[in-house]
Amino acid sequence: MPETRDQRRMGLLLASPAALLMLLLQVLPLLLVLGTAFTDWQLGGDPPAFVGLENFRALLADPDFRASVLVTARYILMVVPGALGLGLGLALLLQGCGRGRMIYQTIFFLPYIATLAAMSIAWQMLLHPSFGMANQVLAALGLGGVNWLRDEATALPVLALIGVWHETGFAMVFFLAALTSVPAELHDAARLDGMGGGWDRFWLVTGPHIASIGLFVLVVLTAHAVMVFDTVALLTQGGPGNATRVLLYVIYQEGFSFFRSNVAATATVFFLAFTLTLGVLQLRLGRTRGAA
């Protein structure tokens, strides 16, 4: 379109619905949440007054909030390495597997698609203290049962296990894509260069090739894990005690059960800082991956 005037008008016309809606549904809420974090506003309460950094100070001093950050961190540290390692392992097993590969892949990916809320109930049945399979197996071995979701020691690890179950297939799919994109000629070249052993070639050819995707998957899995909510809401409601009170569940309770909008907003800002960091990393990694 050579006439730039026309082009300008058409561009504005086509982009304006998206621009206006983004302003209303993304920019405005972001400003709102940032603004609320600096006031004493509570939904349905008095008009807001500016309180500076008071909310942040209070939140950081709150032992419950600090505990929830710790709980979230522990959850991430269990889920991410678990899903990453298992995903890579399954991908490596699937990569040279001729027959049945598609069936395996489908089964491994199914948990990621399946509605997690509904699947949480299935896990609840599996872990039920009286008739759950876990305790039935323990009983058969002559061991006592565990109340998995009501025991402070096991509740978070069990949620992490469900998280790993949910995310492994997701990680696997990326590793599988990376593995199949290793050029066959590189393996041939390595053999002629004297790398006879499969293990040597893995480190020379396959390893570097999947390292970049591994980093990318790590970031995405962390972003998923920090947003854990469904299993907590359905299975433990943050309990027992505060053992599974993850960050997003705190925000949920503060904002939508207790209606302390300022506290929720402040926690959200923390949450945003973390996810934005991950987002920048993800975009960076995604971009370099695209260029390679």
Partner: peptide, 19 residues
């Protein structure tokens, strides 16, 4: 084995190790 033959090869895609 290929790695033990006294043979070198230039590949169509060049097959250089990117890292």
């Amino acid at each position: 084995a290929a790695s033990e033959r006294d043979v070198a090869m230039v590949f169509q895609s060049f097959a250089l190790y990117p890292q």
